[in-house]
Amino acid sequence: MSSFAFTDAVRVGQIGVGRWGRNLLRNFAALDAAEVVAVCDPSDPALAEAARLAPGARAVPNALGVLGDDTVEAVVVATETPLHVEMAEAALRAGKHVFVEKPLAQTVDEAERLVRLAEEHDRRLMVGHLLRYHPAFRHVEEIAAEGALGDIRYLYSVRVNLGVVRQQENAFDSLAPHDLAVARAFLGDAVAVTAQGRAILQEGIEDVVFATVEHAGGALAHLHCSWLDPHKVRRTTWVGSRQMAVVDDMEPAEKVRVYDKGVDTVEGATDLAGALAVRTGDIAVPRIPAAEPLRLECQEFVDAIRENRPPRTDGVDGLEVVRVLEAAKTSLREGRRVEIAR
């Protein structure tokens, strides 16, 4: 366990400065409450980019240079997915707080181990479920908490584009964690999943997946994920008993629309046709404050450390998403509905 005394600025070390890691590094380096002190990556061009983004950070040859540094309070793991658990576990055992890019792990056993380690070492463990910090999704979450949507019957998301094609994870593992985290926030823990997909470009790695996730209260979440699609779509729809909402992240300005639409029950009706009345009201387009979701996510990690509290997307949140990912793999392989055991 490190004996380093925490300062006002959380001293951060980052492992991995790839395509997404560069975005994380840029945002952590811009935070007043954080100081990036060490960065490692096996690629010289990546380290050169890191020097530009965080000029005060030391470039170290491997992860041990970050994990073994007693001045590093928190470690950002931005490696390829198969290395997430190894790096996060080593950091937790070294007494560091840990931010892990999604997904937290590739198996439930691994994710449970990381959650236990974080609890045993009293360290903050956070997962990069970015949409939980997106101002548009936060707005829908807030109005849902106020009861504006009523009971949420189901939600569905479309997350498709052409590329990036992965070789070590399928399209669902790569694209769905954000939406699964959103579904859990609105609908509670998942209890079962049914998934269908096709491996078109590479044997055994699904390029397109359609999954229906059942949640504890009876609501459904349907996810369509693909990296083999002509359009880039990032859209989530909530259907509530009072109102409905849509977040379209590809819209440059009007990202959120709230529809005063639904089907109401008419008391005293004598037949089915008269018992149900379709209601069509106004469409509200709320003003959403401009803020970079990734900056808000990085700030949350630092704030959780300084305030000694669980982050918004903690290790348990990451674990629950991994439970669905693992069940979806079984469903894809065996072609059946898979219950999620706990």
Rank of each mutant, 00 (worst) to 15 (best):
residue 320 E to F: 07
residue 318 G to L: 13
residue 151 D to G: 04
residue 238 W to E: 01
residue 190 A to E: 01
residue 309 R to A: 05
residue 34 A to S: 11
residue 53 L to G: 04
residue 321 V to N: 07
residue 10 V to K: 10
residue 45 P to D: 08
residue 172 F to G: 09
residue 73 E to I: 02
residue 321 V to E: 05
residue 49 E to T: 15
residue 333 R to V: 03
residue 71 T to D: 14
residue 129 H to Q: 15
residue 31 L to P: 00
residue 215 H to E: 12
residue 79 T to K: 03
residue 199 A to I: 11
residue 70 D to A: 14
residue 29 A to I: 03
residue 281 G to A: 09
residue 177 P to W: 09
residue 95 G to F: 13
residue 59 A to Y: 00
residue 219 A to R: 00
residue 118 A to C: 09
residue 334 E to G: 00
residue 131 L to S: 06
residue 214 E to D: 14
residue 105 A to D: 08
residue 283 I to L: 05
residue 295 R to C: 05
residue 165 V to H: 12
residue 38 A to I: 08
residue 161 N to W: 00
residue 56 G to M: 13
residue 268 G to N: 11
residue 159 R to Y: 12
residue 43 S to G: 15
residue 65 G to W: 04
residue 293 P to M: 00
residue 94 A to Y: 04
residue 315 G to K: 04
residue 29 A to S: 14
residue 280 T to D: 04
residue 151 D to L: 01
residue 323 R to A: 01
residue 311 P to F: 01
residue 29 A to P: 03
residue 12 V to Q: 12
residue 146 E to S: 15
residue 274 G to F: 12
residue 25 L to M: 10
residue 89 E to L: 14
residue 132 R to P: 07
residue 114 L to S: 11
residue 335 G to F: 07
residue 318 G to V: 09
residue 227 W to K: 02
residue 54 A to G: 00
residue 167 Q to F: 04
residue 9 A to E: 15
residue 108 V to K: 06
residue 134 H to A: 06
residue 198 R to Q: 13
residue 235 R to P: 02
residue 247 V to W: 04
residue 338 V to E: 10
residue 186 F to D: 03
residue 182 V to Q: 04
residue 192 A to E: 15
residue 174 S to Q: 10
residue 117 L to F: 09
residue 256 V to P: 04
residue 254 E to G: 13
residue 238 W to C: 07
residue 137 F to P: 12
residue 4 F to M: 06
residue 92 L to K: 00
residue 138 R to C: 10
residue 158 V to L: 01
residue 265 T to V: 14
residue 313 T to P: 06
residue 179 D to S: 06
residue 287 R to V: 13
residue 22 R to A: 14
residue 276 L to Q: 05
residue 328 A to C: 13
residue 27 N to T: 00
residue 131 L to G: 02
residue 1 M to A: 13
residue 13 G to N: 03
residue 120 E to R: 15
residue 326 E to F: 08
residue 47 L to G: 05
residue 191 V to Q: 03
residue 215 H to K: 10
residue 179 D to E: 14
residue 30 A to E: 07
residue 225 C to A: 14
residue 4 F to V: 03
residue 111 A to C: 10
residue 265 T to D: 05
residue 163 G to D: 06
residue 58 R to Q: 15
residue 100 V to G: 10
residue 303 D to R: 15
residue 250 M to P: 06
residue 115 V to E: 03
residue 276 L to S: 02
residue 307 E to N: 13
residue 175 L to W: 06
residue 111 A to W: 11
residue 180 L to W: 01
residue 124 R to M: 13
residue 30 A to D: 13
residue 108 V to D: 01
residue 92 L to G: 04
residue 313 T to I: 07
residue 284 A to F: 00
residue 105 A to S: 09
residue 89 E to T: 08
residue 231 H to Q: 14
residue 222 H to S: 14
residue 164 V to A: 09
residue 135 P to L: 04
residue 187 L to I: 06
residue 115 V to R: 11
residue 189 D to H: 10
residue 259 Y to R: 11
residue 10 V to L: 09
residue 93 R to S: 08
residue 2 S to Q: 02
residue 244 M to F: 02
residue 141 E to A: 15
residue 101 E to R: 05
residue 299 Q to W: 10
residue 85 V to I: 03
residue 148 A to M: 06
residue 65 G to S: 02
residue 12 V to H: 06
residue 30 A to Y: 08
residue 288 I to K: 02
residue 302 V to H: 10
residue 264 D to H: 08
residue 157 S to D: 07
residue 26 R to W: 11
residue 238 W to P: 05
residue 51 A to W: 03
residue 155 L to D: 03
residue 303 D to C: 01
residue 254 E to H: 15
residue 321 V to G: 00
residue 208 V to C: 08
